[in-house]
Design a protein around this nucleic acid. Structure first.
Lengths: 286, 286
DNA sequence: CGTACACTTGAGTGGCCTCAATACCTGTGG
DNA sequence: CCACAGGTATTGAGGCCACTCAAGTGTACG
């Protein structure tokens, strides 16, 4: 994957446009990333394999896991609130936002969906979707129909348990956001979000030691943290003035990781605790 | 259980307390559920049966579901953050709070756990618990060890799917709280909480048409909504002045349900949407 | 009758919001 | 090439919602 660092989150685009100064040929064409969609292991497989040991049969099953794959253009809904969906899906490529719009137009972004994350939890377990999910960039989504999901639980218990555990992570991340919005100040929330993004992007190989490409506008960050975009700008300035972060273009670099973590009360543990309890595996498979 | 009316929200107390202002013989709504503590069906079984049809074998399995049962006194932790737990548990009796305390002492209450709710999701799927759960009143907790849980998924797929769905509800409730704290004002949040409590208590038969016993102090409500207890007091006054609610003793009565729901932008659907998708059952069991 | 706890209410403060103006970048079209 | 529009970020002025601090009430309990 030899791309520079313009849009590091687009994993598979072969000819990624370099810097933002360069002229780019076509804007919203989807054709670029079609063929090498997911190289040897998908993001989901990587996430699972990092947490539990998978048998060759498991890996084979994961390779043929998806029922259908579709492309979603940037800024288009993958899931729309109120509609019915009867399959679980996985975001295999690109990024997306899960959000809800209230009657009066206020919007709350619940979380950012990264490659390898599930889409449709908890939506697909309800009769109609509770939230909308919109693609931040061109995205690739694959679906898993329920029969296959249950087959999975029956025949590949380790994968089933791991997926169970991924759902737990999802719930835990919502809970962490409740804590953040409920109790922390604007700087703390922003610092926490930056560290969360850095950590999650590192896990799937889309961030280096201390910098990453910020995929969100300041207004989106505000909608995510219960603040206004204007105030996000002021808060960023504060972080910059304190020498904690540097923003160059759309690349955000964390200059003092320890200080930022201390400010945010960020416990890396809360993401590294995201390892599966061994108790989930009372018996080893053959 | 020999104490007087000090903790009236303890479900199973035979002599339900009266409101302190008016000497009426029985409390409204609390009367019905007094003696049949957990009789014929547990709260969990009732919740499941309301959503899916259970075979006699399923019911029999549910009756013998629990591995051990223990009592927890009021104000004692059922689960403590940072410790390891290797079983899923169900709150069978009493109420509890799930919360996290930050370094500087701020506390965020994530939700209130009612009879029939799971304890230990997502805690038990991590190596150490992410949050603490403390008993509001004397409580009865039963645990389900993992082997039995997996047995359940293998041998009683309908129950397994239903439990899956309950976890989805849990995640969705966290997400709703994010939306509430992130976007709504103090009155809206409080109104929403009151309606959520009313609805959830009604489902398990602990509330009547428009009133219920408020199990939380105002400071606890504040910690739940990201506000201070003082401001909860002011907000309650506003709701009282507007003729929306009445508080007598610890019984909260909603006088104008429609107006309160409109104020809170409360969609009853968001709880009634909590019915399981039929898609979860591609095939009927025998 | 004194302590403890929850609730109420007031006065003053502060964090974040709203409104608004400006600058910048990018793509589009004259 | 420049003009223009749309989206994004920055910065200022003023306002409001919720906070902090504090005093006072009512109830429960020893």
């Amino acid at each position: 994957m030899p791309q520079p660092h313009d849009h590091p989150y687009i994993v598979a685009r072969p000819a990624a446009p370099a810097a933002e100064t360069e002229p780019r040929g076509r804007r919203r064409g989807l054709q670029a990333q079609t063929n090498p969609v997911m190289s040897p292991a998908s993001a989901l497989t990587r996430k699972l394999a990092a947490r539990t040991s998978l048998s060759p049969a498991d890996l084979e099953f994961l390779d043929a896991l998806y029922d259908e794959t579709r492309l979603v253009g940037a800024n288009r809904d993958i899931i729309t609130e109120g509609y019915k969906y009867d399959a679980l899906a996985v975001l295999r490529h690109g990024m997306a936002l899960r959000y809800r719009v209230l009657r009066d137009g206020r919007r709350q972004i619940l979380n950012i969906v990264l490659p390898g994350d599930f889409i449709g939890f908890p939506a697909c377990f309800f009769d109609t979707a509770l939230y909308s999910i919109t693609a931040l960039s061109d995205a690739v989504v694959s679906s898993i129909r329920f029969p296959r999901l249950f087959q999975l639980f029956g025949e590949h218990p380790r994968i089933g348990a791991a997926i169970f555990w991924l759902f737990s992570c999802e719930a835990a991340m919502y809970a962490e956001r409740v804590i953040g919005i409920g109790q922390r100040s604007a700087v703390e929330r922003l610092a926490h979000l930056l560290l969360e993004l850095l950590t999650r992007l590192q896990i799937i190989g889309l961030a280096d030691e201390n910098s990453f490409h910020m995929p969100l506008t300041q207004e989106q960050i505000g909608d995510m943290l219960g603040l206004t975009g204007v105030h996000i700008s002021r808060t960023f300035r504060q972080l910059r003035n304190d020498g904690l972060v540097v923003i160059a273009g759309q690349v955000l670099k964390i200059k003092d990781l320890r200080a930022l973590a201390a400010l945010a009360d960020f416990e890396r543990t809360y993401l590294s605790h995201f390892r599966m309890s061994e108790a989930l595996f009372p018996e080893e498979p053959g």
